[in-house]
Design a protein around this nucleic acid. Structure first.
Lengths: 108, 108
DNA sequence: TCCGGATATAAGTAATACCTTATATTAGGA
DNA sequence: TCCTAATATAAGGTATTACTTATATCCGGA
């Protein structure tokens, strides 16, 4: 499933926002999403599965709970795809600034 | 139609890539897409309509031809949404670097 | 070892997205 | 004015997606 297919769904975007703040158990995510979107626990679990299988989230087990965390790799792919359009809104940058802006600079 | 709904389709993404290089007449876009994706002119025209109506492209008329160009506003929205995830892959930046990286610095 | 809480999966359904073919619209040249 | 090229729209079929309810799995504590 392509990154944009995953991000297309507003529920999945909201879950990623939640996970970007801090890691959450599946039940915590479900509680928020059920309230905000009026969907069931099963539906949230299916969205978590999509996020897992598409590489947007990782899970670790904590007793009976599953703790979800963001895996940013596919988001970084999206960011890279946007690269070619940035010149439409970013002011012209000199070479050094461009390196910094892209986060490619080697740091000590 | 939300930006991610638009970007979900690979044909539309490819059209935007073409338009990012330079403006193109609808027929030029259609020629490339028909070849690369084996779909009809009608299908390409429908995708161009989606791009127009969702604000990703603008059109100007040149005789019987319609010249399409990128409008980056919705792409910038996507870029802004990604903001909260950048800390997952960007090295820590000091304040000035961060401003530069975000392109917010006032320039002379 | 049995039970309850937490989570995932299965099966089915309804809406939607994207395609096709056919046709309409519009502009410029003979 | 008529013809053709360029482009858009209409109508309809099909696959996919996101939901529902029902059930399975897994873990820790009594």
């Amino acid at each position: 499933m392509h990154a944009f297919d995953v991000l297309r769904d507003p529920v999945r975007r909201r879950i990623l926002e939640l996970l970007s703040e801090e890691d959450h158990a599946a039940g915590e995510v479900a509680a928020v999403i059920e309230r905000e979107f009026s969907i069931t626990q099963a539906a949230v679990s299916q969205h978590l599965k999509v996020l897992r299988e598409s590489g947007f989230a990782t899970v670790r087990i904590d007793g009976a709970r599953r703790i979800y965390a963001v895996d940013a790799d596919p988001l970084q792919d999206v960011d890279a795809w946007l690269e070619r359009f940035r010149r439409f809104w970013e002011p012209k940058l000199d070479a050094l600034e461009t390196e910094i802006a892209r986060g490619r600079r080697k740091r000590p």
